[in-house]
Amino acid sequence: MKKILKTFIVVLVSVTISFAQGFKVKASGEKTFNFEDKYGRNQLTFFSTTPLEDITGVSNSIKGKVTFNVADIKTLKGSISMPVASLKTGIDLRDEHMRSENWMDAENYPDIIFLIKSVSNVITEADNKISAKLTGDFTTHGVTKEIVVPITLTYLDESEQTKKRAPGDLLGVQASFNITLSDYDIDNMVIGQKMADDIEIRVNIVGSSAM
C-alpha cells in the first residue's frame, strides 16, 4: 500500500512539474524582482489619439516587485505602481491639468497601481522568454477594475553584460494594453475632449533580483 501511495505521489509531482511552464535558465527556485530604477530607465508610455490632437505621455518612475518560481510562471504575484505626478506629456500646463482635481486628482489618488492576481495563456517562446496574460486589479483615480494584460517576460541570468545595468538576474517585462478612462470616472470632457476616452498604455520595464 505504501509503495502504491509513494508511486502515486511521485507521478503526481512529475506531472505537476512537467505541466508547469517556466523559464529554462540557470536560476531556480523563487525569485523576487524589484522594478525601481534610480536611473529612470524603466518607462510607461500612454498614447491618446483624437481628431484634435495626439498626446503622448511617459513616466520613468515605475515601482513594484514581483515574485515567482522560475520553473512555474503561474506562481507570479506582485504589483507595479507609478505616481500620477510623474506623468509628463511635454507641455507643463497640460501636465498640471492632468494632475488637477478635475482630472487625475493626483493629490487624492497619487498612484496608479496594477495588482497581479493570476497568470494564464502561458506560451514559452524561448528558454528565457515567455508570453502570457496577466489578470489583475488596475487602480487609478480611486477606482479599481479587473483587467487582462498581455505581457512578454524575458529572463536573463546574471552575467558581465547584465551587471552593466544592475546586479542580479534581470527580468524584462513588455506589455501593451488599453484602458477606458470613463471606466475610472475620469471625464475627458473636462479638458475639452483633447484626450481620448480609450488610452493605449505600453510598459517597458526591467527588474533586478538583487535590488
Binding site: Q43, T45, T56, V58, G90, L156, T162, G172, R202
Partner: peptide, 24 residues
C-alpha cells in the same frame, strides 16, 4: 515645445525584449 524621440536600444535592452523608449 518639444517632440518625443525614440531612443536606440542597447544590445542588453534588445536581449531583455524591450521596446524603444521615448525621450523628450
Amino acid at each position: 515645445d518639444g517632440v518625443w524621440i525614440e531612443q536606440p536600444l542597447s544590445d542588453l535592452d534588445k536581449a531583455l525584449g524591450q521596446q524603444p523608449k521615448l525621450d523628450f
